[in-house]
Design a protein around this nucleic acid. Structure first.
Lengths: 122, 122
DNA sequence: ATAGATGCAAAGGGTTTGCACTTGA
DNA sequence: TCAAGTGCAAACCCTTTGCATCTAT
């Protein structure tokens, strides 16, 4: 991915405009506004390339298609609405993780996903 | 799922014998020892039924296919080893989750996965 | 006997890939 | 120009579903 294409620019623009993690399909929907005819395969190829070059990071939500968001954010977690399925960034983190790890285990990271209802669906 | 079939018994047996969370394919592999000819569709149907009746619970690991384990364990989370891929039960939980939720959001559950190296791989 | 459960294969949904065409540099 | 990038459709993988057959009760 060395060239600047209309499609690639549209995809990057989508992530610049959106703060919350997006699935490939959501990226496609938003991108097509500024780049009609864009194909889902191109979204997948570009998202993968953008992750490889460190511009995006994957947000892995259990049981959901993978989503992506801009890299470089401060440490945070996510909240998924059980009603609309939307994913929202949650600031802050929890403490006490070290105390949960069995002796001999080395902790180097964690993923936390909160579930419930978002403000609109509640 | 109101009847006791050979297939259903074999599937339950697998979960009784295994403590670790299993994917549908792993359940199939183990079940076929005691029930040759068992189909993957039957595994999916029975696992789903066993979850619905509360005998199994889904273990959602980000980026991994869903796994299932016996219900009734005390609330716990999981540790995944980055080296061997193994999943380990982690006792305990974290506090302060309510404070992380934006106003208007309703929290009703959470998933926490720790990453690092298990005692054997460390 | 008969509704429930199974096995197979086909259908779905999301993701990847092959290939001819388009396009940025 | 001409290889990188795209669009389309087919291929894949995992999961679900339709349907004829089998079976627990």
């Amino acid at each position: 991915m060395k060239r600047n294409t209309r499609q690639r620019d549209a995809i990057r623009q989508v992530f610049d405009d959106e703060r919350d993690p997006l699935s490939p399909q959501e990226v496609l929907d938003r991108s097509q506004t500024h780049c009609p005819g864009l194909g889902i395969a191109t979204v997948y190829r570009n998202v993968k390339a953008l992750v490889d070059e460190g511009w995006l990071v994957a947000v892995l939500v259990p049981g959901e298609p993978d989503r992506y968001e801009l890299a470089g954010k401060v440490h945070h977690h996510h909240f998924q609405c059980r009603a609309c399925g939307g994913l929202f960034d949650i600031d802050g983190c929890v403490a006490g993780l070290d105390g949960m790890v069995p002796s001999g285990f080395q902790l180097d990271g964690h993923e936390l996903t909160l579930y419930g209802r978002c403000a609109r669906c509640a």
